[in-house]
Write a protein that binds this DNA or RNA. Sequence first.
DNA 1: CTTGACCTTCCCCTATGCTGGAATGTCAAG
DNA 2: CTTGACATTCCAGCATAGGGGAAGGTCAAG
Lengths: 129, 129
Amino acid sequence: MRIGEAAAAAGTSTKTLRFYEDRGLLPPAERTGNGYREYGNDAITRLEFIRRGRAAGLTLAQIGEILTLRDRGSAPCTHVRDLLAGQLADLDAQIAELAALRDAVAGFHHTASAGDPADCDPNRICSYL
Amino acid sequence: MRIGEAAAAAGTSTKTLRFYEDRGLLPPAERTGNGYREYGNDAITRLEFIRRGRAAGLTLAQIGEILTLRDRGSAPCTHVRDLLAGQLADLDAQIAELAALRDAVAGFHHTASAGDPADCDPNRICSYL
DNA sequence: CTTGACCTTCCCCTATGCTGGAATGTCAAG
DNA sequence: CTTGACATTCCAGCATAGGGGAAGGTCAAG
């Protein structure tokens, strides 16, 4: 199938397919006589995998690693497990950071809600921040 | 004081000061005869405010709004309170999203940790994702 | 007189994952 | 024969908050 059909089948755009090929996530597509890219079902499988990886918050670079391992014939499962572990740790760190920020902002907001704007110190930009 | 001293006093870089001026967060600096920027203590106050705002996760655009209100003579406290409320809501949404992602990734990771790589289905890129 | 530490403007680069558009080619249908 | 829907390549941009470095001006000290 041609690029438009493949993109539609994978629920993405032709731009994205060319972009992935350029980034090495998809192998260079076969070309028909007129230079059009030609895709098979394996490309769709690959695109779906990429989408699942994205949904799990993996970067294209990480997904590319997995695909490269797969393409070299080795089972990437162990690597995937490690990536997932790292992703889990990253997410926990991000969540902790955001939660701390949230608490700080909540404190500011509480003060701001309780205060009277008339009390605002003209020497500060804003007393609440 | 000149830009280098001001930057050091505010704990930032000269690049950042010029950048903020360009973005309207700092008023165009006075210039001495040789064209050098000249700063007073109010600039430091402003820079410190910007830093507090950044630490609260506000964007430069939002901080700019506050400063503009302040420069027009009105007390920006009410606006600050609203910005903080919005920021709080944003943070809660982000945290919820990350937490959901974290759970999904944890599920994948659990499966990956339990499985045997030998079971990997050759027809899939990786059975664990 | 020169060196070194400042300062100026200017433009490009970073990371991420695409998206838009221009200029051009291909091909089946009416 | 032309129109329209495809396809190709390549270049540019988004949004964020600056950083890097070039080419050059200024000024005090040695």
